[in-house]
Each structure stands twice: as C-alpha cells, then as structure tokens.
Design a protein around this nucleic acid. Structure first.
Lengths: 230, 230
DNA sequence: CCCGTTATATATATAAAGTATAGAAATAGC
DNA sequence: GCTATTTCTATACTTTATATATATAACGGG
C-alpha cells in the first residue's frame, strides 16, 4: 500500500457493547453490508460528525443500536494503525459500554446479534483486538470499583453478583468471602425482598444506589481460586 | 462557529513529557509561533502522518524534542471537542512520557522550556486539561507498578525514590514503612554502593532491573498522611 | 410428613498486608 | 568528643484477606 501524504485521515468511533446474557459476557455485533469485510461481523461504529465530540459520537452510535441512555460508557483506546483498514486511512476511537440485559429491547436479526466474547466469529478489521482490550479494561475497572452492577438487573442476589464477577474475571471466587466483602461495598443496599423462584432457599435481593464508581473499597477479586470440590 | 459537514477532521498527537527536576514534576512545553494561540505555551505535538501509526507519531514527536528513545510512553486519551481548536476540527490523541532528567540533553530556549506542573503558564487549546489528566494517570500507574523509577536516575537512594512518589502523589509518606515496602518491590536491586555526597550518613544506592511494569506488589502509596512534626 | 439435597446465610480462626513507633548506626560540623 | 541529621533495623499493633465449620430455609421424593 502506497501512502499519499496529501490524503486525509478519516475518524470513526466504535463501541464495544457488553452485556450479561445466558450466563456469559456477550458483545453486540453488526454484520457488514459493504466492502471491505463484507458479511463479516464488526463492532457498531460510525464516522464522527464535525459538530459532535467523541463522547457524543459514541453515545449516538450506542443509542442507534440499543436505544438505551444513561449507561456506563468509557473511552477505551484509539487505534490508528495505517493498515487496519485495507483501503483507507481510518483512525478509530474505541469506546466500551456496559448495559443491562433487562434494559435492552433489541430485535436481533441476521445483521445484528449477540456473541459470547469467549467464542467470537471472524471479525472485521482489528475488532477482535478491540474487544479483548475492552475485557481487559473491564477487569481493571472491576478491581477498583463495583462496575459489574452495570451488568446486573436493578435487583439482584449476591450469587448473581458473584457470578458476574466470576465471568468478568474468569476465575472462581469463594462464596463466603465474596459475601463478606460484597456486603461492605459502599452503595450496596439490602432490600427486604427475596427471590421466590425455582431455587431452594430464597435469596435476599440487593440493589445499588446511584452511583459511586470510584469506591476504592470494592475490589474483592483478590481471592485465590477456590479448589474444585469433587 | 458553523460546522460544514463536508470538511474533514485533522488528527494530531500531543505528548506530555514529564520529568523530575529541581525537586518538582516538570513538563516540557513549546511556545507557539503561529496563530491560534501565538506566543502561548503548548504541549509538543504534530500531525499524524498517513504512513505511521499513533505510537510512531508520538515517538517521533518525543524524539524530535528530546532525542531520547526507549522511554515510558503511553497513550493517554483522545480529545475531540469540536471547539478545542478555534478555527479547525482537530482531534488529538494525547500521549504521556516519563523521562529521566539524567538522559536528557535539551537546550532550553525562549521557545522550549520546562515548567512545574504545579505552576503552569497560560496554555494553548485544552492543554491544561491534558496535562492534568496525565498526572492523574501517572498516579494511577504508580498505585499498581513502580513506574516512578522511570523518572529516577539509573542509581538512586530510597529517599530519592520516596521523594518521587511523594511528588507524584502529592502526599507525604512514612519513611520507615516506605522502605519496608520499597525493598519488597520486584525488580529492585540493592547495590554495594553508597552516596558520598554532602549528606550525613551515606545512603545505599539501588537500581531497577529492566523492566516489570505490571508488578502488583509495588503499590505502596496507601499509607496515611504522616502528620507534620513541629 | 420426614429426610436428604441444595442453595443461602452467619460466625470464627488463621494468615498476610498495612500502619505506627522506638531506637541504633554513620557522617559532618562545631 | 558532642550534637544534629540522615540512614537503617526491629517490632508491636491494626486492618484486610483467606480458610473452614456450621446453621437455616425451601424443595422434592418416598
């Protein structure tokens, strides 16, 4: 590829939209309708308009695809390899969002679907790298603040919360110690409600008050892997 | 300002170059020769060439200004407010670098000089925000890895290391506890050399082996503020 | 309706890391 | 030699993290 220095850059935003569905962290992908990478799956994205800033562009893309507002959205990283787009010079500012499955009302189609991040299809551009980096960042965030509640329904059990942590961190945590530390988390509210679902003993429901995502006390991931009991 | 959606974006990199000089964290600034913000100080930067990626562009800017290689350089954040440049649409990908004063061989002039980050002049564009964010990120890095050694000379005393931590974190640390945790840091090597300078008892010199900037064990900043003794 | 199963919940012991404080050793200046 | 100053060692105390035992509540099968 020959670069003509008089050509200009194009700049896009791409948004990694993560949710918790079917006991797995899943990412929303769109199928590309045009070349390059026609028919490959890709992260939702779009050109940055001249009148909007990067956050606004990312929010617009997120809203177009999910119709949700008021979501955890954070700038992730800017990817600018000259060869990341095969026939143009496109720099993309990647964002990632954590959304509640409960809040979503997405009609998935042949061109818009959820995929487990642990089992991705062949992706367009460098989008695989971008998704992997978004998971790394999510883990880093979780180590310093209880950002996982962004993935939980409004009311949740401690077991559900632990499951979210385990899926993000890819390791098992000890139930009893998780409870102790979770309960000490700033912002967690104990409700006088219980699950009455199919399970055995009903579990107490909790919720998070809006919002303290800088709480240092909530990094309860350090626990060593619990050994699997036979 | 009216935005014409057919106009294209321009993309630059700006590099916050931090060092430790005269008992303060200092940043390298250049005086702008042209409008806008003529004669105001700014972070060194430049347009991203079509043939280079963002890291390469940042390295090039860093090398142009400081002639140092092999430096701690990290992408910081991308700033893209439509109004950040008064008469163009310039998105900038900001980087920050930590350099050793010892390695530098910069001739400072009327157009290139070091400024204490705690006492900055009036800056061009949003560069004040960018510098502040680079300090925040440096603090975050320091909480999880001993990145401060990037600012220290090759051989240093624990007192010098502590001083670097205190300057970055803007708080005093307890000397005895700092020593205990610093000595436990992975990668720190105790030398059989001592200072023989003007001070009282000679201090042992230490160095860092190349390089483990992901060591979790090195976040020894948590100490409570030592009360000032009268 | 008893009883085993399963998941929730509480209490407590042990280990590790973080914080606080006393004081000894080495040098320079007087 | 005495004092001031800085480096360096040792140790007690507090908090957090990890490990383990046991009780409680519902369900389902006989």
């Amino acid at each position: 590829m020959i670069f003509n220095e008089t050509k200009t850059h194009e700049i896009t935003v791409d948004v990694v939209i993560l949710t918790l569905k079917n006991n797995a962290i899943q990412v929303l992908l769109v199928k590309r309708l045009n070349e390059p990478f026609k028919d490959k799956w890709a992260i939702p994205g779009g050109y940055v308009r001249l009148s909007e800033n990067l956050d606004e562009a990312a929010l617009r893309v997120l809203k177009e695809r999910t119709n949700v507002d008021n979501i955890y959205l954070e700038q992730l990283y800017t990817f600018g390899d000259p060869l990341r787009h095969p026939n143009a010079r496109v720099i993309t500012c990647a964002y990632f969002a954590l959304v509640r499955a409960e809040d979503l009302n997405i009609v998935t189609t042949d061109e818009l679907a959820w995929f487990k991040v642990s089992d991705l299809p062949k992706l367009a551009f460098d989008h695989k790298d971008i998704i992997e980096y978004s998971m790394k960042r999510t883990r880093e965030r979780l180590e310093i603040c209880p950002v996982a509640y962004q993935l939980l329904n409004e009311k949740f059990t401690l077991t559900e919360m632990q499951k979210a942590y385990e899926l993000i961190m890819s390791k098992e945590l000890d139930k009893r110690n998780f409870r102790k530390k979770a309960i000490a988390t700033e912002g967690l509210i104990e409700l006088e409600e219980y699950t009455k679902s199919s399970s055995k003993r009903p579990a107490r429901l909790y919720t998070f008050e809006n919002i303290k995502l800088n709480s240092k006390r909530a990094h309860f991931i350090s626990g060593k892997k619990k050994e699997k009991v036979k």
